[in-house]
Design a binder for these strands. Structure first.
Lengths: 154, 154
DNA sequence: TCGATCCCCCGAATTTATTTCGTGAAACAA
DNA sequence: TTGTTTCACGAAATAAATTCGGGGGATCGA
């Protein structure tokens, strides 16, 4: 599981644009298409490259509001943590779930239609849960992703 | 900018796996490859489909720890918000930045080597900034993404 | 009811890319 | 040196993306 400079270039390029053709990718890293393909296949089989996901415009799907919901559980038993985790990931409004150590136990990133929808979600899917002690909702004004996962092996 | 059921199927499938070939995608949504391609191209040109990003294993890159850093600014002037925003997004350790309304002003998701690296990052890149009044770091135990962006137009 | 128009689909043909495979050069150990 | 491994290359075969002409319904107005 050793990554040389070319592997890192491949990973960075595919993180920025997974739709790059193998031919373009090969040209960008200075390899023949066949050699490049072998590396990509190796990275995939080793689990370093895990897949690719398309990004869609939230507004086009009617998402007018996003929020971070900080959740505090009543107890910190493994069963309660797992139960809430599974529940949150099953909700369609949930984009991602962070299980954290700190004043709160979870941070849940949600995408909703509007403020009314957010209120209903908070009340129906969070507050009413028996394992949830307290929630605190923060509206998201803006949200951006960094370009690539940092590489500390290089 | 109307999305019918087939458009939604396409968006959902590509969010789950952007490496789906047009041929497979067409078969999955019940369309001929040429018709499917036309739809995908339309979705791209309209900005609904924004691109695709490969996912890589953080551990393979030497990322041993992730954290959410909650940031409170000294003032809430537009200049300070923008300055911090740009600064945070420029850091290699930063995976994403949320500008939020609530007790904190930002939540910053970072990926670091280890606890020592996290401490250095917090002190050097956050605490020392003049616009930052206070930070609160939460270790991330586990982190998961929901499958797809919800669709409220369907 | 009857066109006329539009929209969107299909399938064949063409272009382009992916993938396989045999070969050979460099690095390394015995 | 000699054998072994690793890795890149390029040509050939396979498969996919893309273009394009044409045709089936809807819908609309007369």
């Amino acid at each position: 599981m050793d990554l040389d400079r070319i592997d890192c270039d491949i990973l960075n390029l595919l993180q920025k644009d997974a739709r790059l053709s193998n031919k373009e990718l090969a040209a960008a890293v200075g390899l023949a298409p066949s050699s490049c393909l072998a590396r990509v296949q190796r990275l995939r089989s080793e689990g370093v490259l895990r897949g690719a996901h398309a990004e869609v415009d939230p507004q086009a799907l009617g998402v007018g509001l996003q929020a971070l919901i900080a959740v505090q559980l009543r107890q910190h038993s493994r069963a309660q943590v797992k139960a809430f985790w599974k529940h949150a990931l099953g909700l369609p409004e949930v984009l991602s779930v962070f299980h954290v150590a700190g004043t709160h136990d979870f941070q849940v990133h949600v995408a909703v239609r509007d403020a009314h929808h957010l209120r209903d979600l908070a009340l129906d899917a969070f507050t009413t849960r028996t394992e949830v002690a307290h929630i605190q909702t923060s509206l998201i004004f803006e949200w951006a992703k960094g370009a690539v996962m940092p590489n500390y092996r290089a």
